[in-house]
Design a protein around this nucleic acid. Structure first.
Lengths: 226, 226, 226, 226
DNA sequence: CATGAATGAGTCTTCATTCAT
DNA sequence: GATGAATGAAGACTCATTCAT
């Protein structure tokens, strides 16, 4: 049943749109209509998968261990999902969807470019700090997941995000808020900067992430302000 | 995100030699005296392992594939190494050793704190750019390698690096070069910033890393300068 | 060789109805009285099974794929049929029933023995040529289907057919149409001959089966005629 | 080890050449040099596979069952062979190689075309009769084995055989031994005829194959003789 | 110094069937 | 009359490691 339902990736209604999740149109256009039980099971399994990846890493994640964590039989997983791949992609896409839902509100609430940059970084880090396991899992999967042919499965998934931030930076330059720099290059640096801080927190959770947010905001602010 | 979020650990400048990065000590305390052939074989195998990890990722790396790449029999590997673990740790430690060899020279040649910061970031990125495969391999291993119990094998390996950069920043503040900020926090941010840029390059090699170095240096400069 | 080496069994001409080819008898002796819907569903499923076996081969045929082909849920199949076995047997028996319906008319219309032989071979091959998928499916199932214990499920199903053709050949010998030979042995050979030609057509449908019929008739004619 | 050693298919030295086994050149041209043990193990496994396929059919043949039959662990099989596919192909190719080795001698010993036809059919059937299990296995594999993409793995493998027999028939026609007919069509029929008789014996071994050989030779003789 | 052979645990996935609704 | 959910057994294959030579 339910072939090709690698699905979702819908924009949050009203929300601008999630630049991280490029629209990849489903060939079978009818989205699978799932029963209550099915939806619950799928959620349960994705949740279990998230935890396992976060704890044991990408390479240590097997269907057997996901089943164990969810306290179900392995067959239940293969019944509700096409693939291990499908599960892993859902872990990633759901995280981004929810993250962007949160961020977009904060970003749009700001009027100035610098306010939007701060809102972007701040709300992103806040969201991640609140969902550490999900973030770790997403990180692991993005860094490791490959297509059957062997190339990274999530390469270039991030360019739209860079585009969006670049636009904000350019507006800030036009408005005289920011100094002169290559907007696209700096957009990359900022995003990667945040990723990096996240990364250190991912490896070593002794650093309280939320405490580092103001420092990072301040750092970026000085770096780009006129 | 952050395929390259793990990375960087190297000797504190001036410090002689980090025993943690050394090959694991021989249980019989006399350090292994290796023949010429032995050393050659080990180097060849570590080199092959590096390439395989870079190409196929951590999860795609098996002894069989390393053997294939090195054009030797699998048994040669298990003869010369205790473990798969031993090989992977060597890939990481050798990369850091060589990287720091390069960097320390550049850093120590500078007299001002800001010069040292620039030398640090610049020479690090240059070195990585010249050794992409090694960098990718190191990244993958640091992000994925685990102890038999399942916890990250390279957690908390980064503190010395942070310590060293913190010292430089503090000196810069005392000398009036840098503005006021939490030196340790910013040290982390700077290092992670570089990581982040590396991460984007790791995923997508179309971005010419060396071209981005000046932008990053400029970015950091503005962020910390008085 | 001989993708089509299994095949052919049908009612002896004149004989009413072969119970061995019938659906397996209901344990409670009253024959199943099926509703219109039930009969339609069963037909639909058997038809889908036929197509799947023809396309994917015996080993590639699963209930899941039959359901997919019929665009129904897998449970519909298990509701209407006892078994996978029951479906496969029906594919075979229905093909033979319909085939013999066609052949018997042609054979009985002939008065001479040699005419009957020609009618037999000719109409058989014609029928098969018109129902390639059904023929392929039947072939695959006869060649592969096994009892739960592992022995061929359709062994020894061919004797009646041989008997019937043997009778015709013997009559031809008595009437002086055919030369002297072991009638039973030659009956087997003739039937297998047709099988063989079918087999080559099964593997490679570029050979237009109908074009080969005259050659085969000619071949057999020369072989047995006085 | 030993990648790409799907190998063999060499002509028997001196023997004409086996038309059934089209030369499919090995990309890695160096044939694997196997140890005594390796050759013995491979032979043992192929032999076990042959028996399992003959007894349980293509669909009933699993590596587990082959291992059981050979009284070895399943891993031994995957150590010595790349693939299940490799084993199955060997079962087929070895059978043809050996069969042709036998047949070619008999065929070439004859001077007349009709003698060669008789030698062909006779020695083929004799050989098959002496190696029933191998024949059954080969039959099952040829009828069922598919490429990963789903198309029959052994389609069109037989055309060269038809070519060779066609040549003989044409010579017979030129020499006035045979009557006028479409040589290629009849070659197909004759080969398929033999296959068919074999097929009936395959299903039901009560018929003593060797006893049927003279009848078949006689049948074919009458069919094609002037 | 080197390696061929072996193997048990574990990988994902497919499958026919059962059961409750 | 229909079906969604569940499942254990089995499928081929990969892997790191051990051992004897």
């Amino acid at each position: 049943m339910s072939a090709g339902d690698a699905r979702s990736r819908k924009r949050a209604p009203g929300a601008a749109y999630d630049p991280r999740m490029a629209e990849r149109p489903d060939p079978n256009d009818h989205p699978p209509r799932r029963s209550f039980i099915e939806r619950a099971r799928r959620a349960q399994i994705v949740e279990a998968a998230t935890q396992v990846v976060a704890e044991l890493g990408y390479a240590g994640t097997s269907l057997a261990r996901i089943a164990e964590k969810a306290e179900i039989s392995k067959s239940v997983i293969t019944y509700h999902f096409e693939n291990k791949d499908e599960i892993l992609r859902l872990v990633v896409s759901q995280f981004f969807e929810r993250g962007w839902e949160r961020m977009s509100g904060h970003v749009e609430a700001e009027s100035t470019a610098s306010g939007q940059v701060r809102a972007w970084i701040g709300s992103q880090l806040e969201f991640y700090a609140e969902h550490r396991a999900e973030f770790l899992a997403m990180s692991q999967i993005m860094a490791n997941h490959r297509t059957p042919e062997g190339s990274p499965a999530f390469a270039g998934e991030l360019t739209e995000e860079v585009d969006a931030l670049t636009e904000i930076l350019q507006r800030g330059q036009r408005d005289g808020e920011f100094r002169d720099f290559d907007a696209r290059g700096v957009a990359t640096i900022i995003l990667r900067c945040a990723d990096g801080v996240l990364g250190s927190w991912a490896v070593d959770d002794s650093t309280r992430l939320v405490d580092q947010i103001p420092a990072l905001l301040d750092f970026v602010d000085h770096a780009i302000r006129r």
